[in-house]
């Protein structure tokens, strides 16, 4: 497998955060492989990026939840990208997940098993090559389980732990890992939720923060920045109090 030091693989490329991230990296001259479950939609995004930024942009079909297809997907890549950004995610419905294991499993597979399954073979190849960066979009929801969304939260907690371990594992081989923890972001995924406006970021802000963190070699990025402190407080609340709080 050849290598391309300005190539980015985006997993889950049709999400709003992914679209904004691609634009941010495209402005800086990167080319892309957009991996998405819906290749027709990704094709439209790809054309747009190629025309706007005069960069190459390819589409490959990928369903993060279909774990059995992942090795073949990685094998089929014509070049090993310099950067892999995993934006795939599924918020799901907490109440439904509590009543229905299918929904619970979908949340876990999309946010945890699937992401690990696709990132692991890529990580191995980057390790062999001795360079690269893996960017995983986790969530502040993974910092502490809360009654309102602990299926999503626990999957993201698992993903955060995976990225942390991966960072330690790959550091000595020249591969870096960036964990991105967005707070509230106004996207399709959160449409209809009553998000407090002052705390809610636009996907473009998340993308800008992410690119800056990538260039600086940051390990864990909270975006907007204040979520680091909000979550610190949330984590510090003693369990005997936390269990009585409605969140």
């Amino acid at each position: 497998m050849s290598t391309n030091n300005k190539l980015v693989l985006v997993i889950g490329s049709t999400s709003d955060i992914a679209r904004a991230t691609v634009k941010e990296f495209a402005q800086n001259g990167y080319s892309f492989i957009l991996a998405a479950r819906n290749p027709e939609q990704a094709e439209r995004d790809a054309k747009d990026i190629a025309i706007r930024f005069s960069v190459e942009c390819f589409v490959k079909e990928l369903d993060v939840a279909k774990l059995e297809t992942h090795t073949a997907f990685v094998d089929s890549l014509s070049a090993l990208p310099e950067i892999v950004i995993c934006v795939a995610g599924y918020l799901g419905n907490q109440e439904l997940a509590q009543a229905d294991t299918i929904e619970a499993e979908k949340i876990l597979v999309t946010n945890f098993n699937g992401c690990i399954s696709i990132l692991s073979p890529l990580a191995e190849r980057m390790k062999q090559r001795g360079s690269g960066c893996i960017i995983g979009i986790s969530s502040v929801a993974g910092d502490r389980g809360r009654a309102s969304n602990f299926y999503y939260g626990s999957a993201k907690a698992g993903f955060t732990a995976y990225l942390s371990g991966l960072r330690q594992y790959l550091g000595q081989f020249g591969v870096s890992v960036l964990t991105v923890k967005p707070g509230f972001v106004a996207t399709k995924m959160t449409k209809g939720l009553p998000l407090p406006k002052p705390l809610t970021a636009l996907p473009e802000e998340v993308a800008k923060d992410m690119f800056r963190a990538y260039t600086k070699g940051t390990s864990v990025l909270y975006t907007r920045w204040f979520w680091r402190y909000i979550m610190l407080i949330v984590k510090l609340v003693p369990e005997f109090i936390f269990k009585k709080v409605k969140m």
Binding site: R44, D45, D48, I51
Partner: peptide, 9 residues
């Protein structure tokens, strides 16, 4: 505003 892709030129 989100439906904002340039498709061909």
């Amino acid at each position: 505003q989100g439906l904002n892709r340039i498709l061909s030129f």
